[in-house]
Design a protein around this nucleic acid. Structure first.
Length: 553
RNA sequence: GCCCCGGUAGCUCAGUGGACAGAGCGGCGGCCUUCUAAGCCGUUGGUCGGGGGUUCGAAUCCUCCCCGGGGCGCCA
């Protein structure tokens, strides 16, 4: 059991033994390290019902509290009545040994073992290149999926292509127009057409591969070709960008397949049976207002064509049919209003209330040369994911996008990411990892490397780790599994970037003040073991964020 | 008009109702015959947007304002 749970259980037992009325026991990390590793304010909360001073209650609680003295070195009342608990150095040293024996095993958990979770993210229309907003979506979705995996869940990463709607027709028509303009500059461009430079590139590509054979053909006769060509090229481009961004999707789901396999009809049928739809003005409506939405929504237009919502419901129904215990969608803030209607539809279908979880992330604004770069398909400014990767690399891009909580409007400062790369937190963290690797490449006694030896170092030598900065570092390592679990629970990957920076800082501090390669062999071995444990923890945590852990920099 | 997100140090942002509100960057001043100076040490910095309220206790919860961003289609 993790210390927090153990402390919580002990407090619950102590309160029960004294007959105190405690509903919920808060066990929190004190902000000030002088207040121990864990603290509980239960005595403060009990002061009123017990009509006794909180400090007195705290004293009584400490007296009754049964905690293993080998693991908990200090249990004391402090301040207005907090009960503070400190993990013993011996227990912290034991954590180092456990990390070395099995880093992933120590840092991960099996809390969600046996649960199957579908994480759907990015899901951008294949009508243009991915930009920085999609990159935030990709980084968040992938990290959330990895966090679930770190809790033992069986996770599938999925991408939904809206390849069936009118947008694809417009895309095809846009490329067709640019193609014709290669010979006739005045050829009309569609009113709502896509004007990005990539459209001209694709038109040029058609000329190279197909020649002039569509030059004198009526648009109606060749638009299907252009639509298909454009869809294939954009889809391939998106896939290749994401692969380079280190996101490995398990499934690419095409909206068009829902039209082909009768899913739309089945979905309408299910909703009809549930009494959730009706017809009005020649259209089919979802009775969303009966399931929490503010108003009813059209599913099938009076023209007989489905709205965007119907295939989306059918898609979520498909995911549910495939047996996932939970589905997570990562959406941009511009889609937040669809949460309610989607939840209404799923409620109508009879799914559990929290089956679908939607993560909303806010807009990213780019700052370059001190000015905001407005996202525009017309301009050829550096806003695409590809250009971002070319310019500052995958590691920095991912890390920067994950540093901030999803629901903050983040400012991505390109000048900082690029020009001041020495001061980048990602390098700070990676450097800690590389620094440790460097020590081991210089090591003249390879048998001192705890990872190279046949067996782990004798437990006794860890007792040599007594310096304040070593204890602090071990404390940070010991806490990491809880930070990861909390990040998974709250679906907030930014907690890991914070933890990584703290861990790296504690390491650099220790490194700067104490040498590893010292005369005293046991001390050297103990310090090398702590260094390796730190390195493993850094690598495992960076891996969750999809950021590399370099051996040298 | 209604809905969602934000407003915390010069800047970018942490802060799950608890102890004097934190970090990085920036500014200022130091440290390289040493296992990587992409590092370390010191210092500068705040009406937590504003007013009420709930609570033993509020940056955190409720309410009303102010400011910024986004969204409110038989578009996708």
């Amino acid at each position: 059991m993790r210390p927090r749970e153990e402390i919580r259980a002990a407090i619950a037992a102590a309160c029960a033994a004294r007959g105190w009325p405690v509903e919920e026991i808060a066990v929190e990390r004190p902000k000030d390290p002088a207040h121990g590793d864990w603290a509980t304010p239960v005595a403060l909360a009990l002061a009123r019902p017990l009509k006794r001073p909180p400090r007195e209650i705290g004293e009584a609680l400490v007296e009754t509290l049964e905690l293993d003295p080998d693991r908990y070195s200090a249990v004391e009342v402090a301040g207005p009545g907090f009960v503070n608990v400190r993990l013993s150095p011996a227990y912290l040293r034991e954590a180092v040994a456990r990390i070395l024996a099995d880093p992933a095993g120590f840092l991960h958990s099996d809390r969600l073992a046996g649960r199957s979770i579908n994480v759907e993210f990015v899901s951008s229309n294949p009508t243009g290149p991915l930009h920085v907003g999609h990159a935030r979506n990709a980084a968040l979705g992938d990290a959330i999926a990895a966090l679930y995996e770190a809790q033992g869940a069986d996770v599938d990463r999925e991408y939904y292509f809206n390849d069936a709607g009118r947008q694809m027709d417009i895309l095809g028509a846009s490329i067709h127009a640019r193609y014709r303009q290669l010979w006739e500059p005045d050829y009309p461009f569609p009113e709502e057409g896509y004007r990005g430079a990539y459209i001209r590139d694709l038109a040029e590509e058609v000329r190279e591969t197909e020649g002039e054979r569509f030059r004198d053909v009526e648009p109606e006769a060749c638009l299907e070709f252009f639509r298909r060509f454009a869809g294939e090229r954009m889809t391939a481009s998106i896939k290749s960008d994401l692969e380079r961004f280190r996101v490995a999707f398990d499934r690419w789901f095409n909206e068009s397949s829902l039209y082909a396999d009768g899913s739309l009809e089945k979905t309408l049928e299910d909703l009809r049976e549930a009494g959730a739809i009706y017809e009005k003005d020649d259209a089919v409506w979802l009775r969303a207002s009966a399931y929490g939405d503010t108003e009813d929504r059209v599913l099938v237009k009076s023209t007989g064509m489905p709205t965007y919502l119907l295939p989306d419901i059918a898609y979520h129904r498909d995911k549910h049919e495939r047996g996932y215990d939970r589905a997570v969608d990562v959406w941009g803030a511009d889609h937040h209003s669809y949460q309610v209607r989607m939840q209404a539809a799923l409620k109508a279908l009879g799914y559990p209330p929290r089956w679908l979880e939607t993560i909303i992330y806010q807009q990213v604004s780019l700052i370059e040369d001190g000015q905001e770069v407005r996202l525009s398909t017309r301009r050829n400014r550096m806003v695409t994911l590809r250009e971002l990767m070319d310019d500052i690399g995958v590691d920095v891009t991912r890390y920067f996008l994950l540093m901030r909580k999803g629901d903050t409007h983040m400012t991505f400062d390109l000048d900082l990411a690029r020009e001041q790369s020495e001061e980048n937190p990602v390098y700070y963290v990676q450097y800690a990892h590389a620094r440790i690797a460097g020590v081991f490449t210089k090591l003249e006694r390879p048998e001192f490397d705890p990872c190279a030896s046949e067996a782990l170092p004798a437990p006794g030598i860890f007792a040599r780790l007594v310096e304040d900065r070593e204890i602090e570092l071990m404390r940070t390592l010991e806490d990491l599994p809880d930070v990861i679990a909390d990040a998974a629970e709250s679906l907030e990957p930014h907690r890991l970037t914070d933890a990584l920076e703290t861990l790296a800082r504690r390491f650099h501090l220790w490194y700067h003040h104490h040498r590893f390669l010292v005369e005293d062999e046991d001390l050297a071995r103990a310090r090398l073991a702590l260094a390796r444990a730190t390195q493993r923890a850094l690598a495992e945590t960076l891996a969750i964020l999809g950021v590399s852990a370099p051996e040298s920099m």
